[in-house]
């Protein structure tokens, strides 16, 4: 019998691969899939009072969500902020990656390591450092007042949507830089030379050759920035004020002081499905647009 199993093991790559993968798959199933399935079922229960939950299935929580103007507004605002962050991060990071991929000749890896280094320092601290900069008594305001340019601090800097967008753009830069660089680095420079040789202008070469070839990086960056930032909690909590509040802050409240776990679970489910849905649309539109360009 042991011989039989040994033979099966030796003969099939799939068997070997899955036995190697099993710890990872078990972890994913037990710590992610099952908990998320349970979260989904909780979104169909009802919180009776602080301690009790009614376990009869109902879609009422989803109706509740869309009947509460605040939640819908927060969802839309979260998506809008994420969208802006993704767009700005991509646009600002692209030229940097382009420069490193095509103009830097020596020590490219060093440039890249330096670019991603700030990302590894604590997320909380990076967000906090923007509080130091943008705060009412922060770096910008105190400098301007000291220089005599202002009498009153600029209040819109802090506790606003703008503050949240700037901070998130800074915090998620590495997630745009890495995929963009990887896809640009793969482009054979002779393609660009061939484009020029065939009579395209620099501008045309970029839109017809470079950009379409870097598309996997662009889509990758959209995916890994847009989805997680929708669920960001720290930045809006520290810098957002009421203006910059996002859906996550509300979800946290449902699990915390408001104590309505089913509605919190429903909000989380709605947030995740909406953002995944939008991401699929955005990446497909980007692909289509690029196809039209070329």
């Amino acid at each position: 019998m042991i011989g039989f199993w040994k033979k099966i093991y030796a003969k099939h790559d799939s068997v070997k691969a899955y036995s190697l993968l099993s710890p990872a798959l078990i972890l994913i199933i037990l710590a992610m899939v099952v908990p998320m399935a349970l979260m989904l079922s909780f979104s169909m229960f009802t919180q009776v009072n602080m301690m009790e939950i009614d376990y009869t299935f109902t879609f009422q929580r989803y109706i509740d969500f869309f009947q509460k103007n605040l939640l819908v507004t927060l969802l839309i605002k979260s998506i809008k902020i994420s969208f802006l962050v993704t767009l700005i991060t991509l646009i600002t990071a692209y030229p940097v990656c382009y420069y490193i991929a095509f103009y830097v000749k020596k020590n490219k890896m060093l440039w890249l390591v330096l670019l991603t280094l700030p990302f590894w320092t604590s997320y909380l601290l990076r967000v906090f450092s923007w509080k130091i900069i943008l705060g009412t008594k922060g770096v910008i305001n105190s400098s301007l007042i000291n220089a005599g340019i202002l009498n009153e601090p600029l209040t819109f800097l802090m506790y606003s949507e703008t503050a949240v967008v700037i901070t998130l753009t800074h915090a998620w830069a590495a997630f745009a830089l890495l995929p963009l660089y990887v896809s640009l680095e793969k482009i054979d420079f002779s393609f660009i030379e061939a484009g020029r040789d065939l009579g395209l202008s620099r501008f045309e070469v970029f839109w017809k050759i470079t950009f379409p070839l870097s598309l996997p990086g662009v889509i990758g960056a959209i995916l890994i920035i847009f989805i997680p930032t929708v669920g960001d909690y720290v930045t809006p909590a520290l810098l957002g004020g009421t203006d910059g509040r996002m859906l996550s802050n509300m979800i946290q409240a449902y699990f915390g002081k408001i104590n309505n776990i089913p509605l919190g679970a429903a909000s989380a489910t709605i947030m995740l499905t909406t953002v995944v849905f939008i991401t699929i649309i955005v990446s497909n539109v980007t692909k289509k647009l690029t196809q039209r360009l070329t």
């Binding site: 992610m32 909780f42 960001d232 776990i261």
Partner: peptide
């Protein structure tokens, strides 16, 4: 296996909490 990298952390947190 790459999923936890993509899903907003708050959702992972809430799911494990429940």
């Amino acid at each position: 296996i790459m999923m936890p990298f993509l899903i907003p952390e708050i959702i992972l947190a809430v799911a494990i909490l429940i």
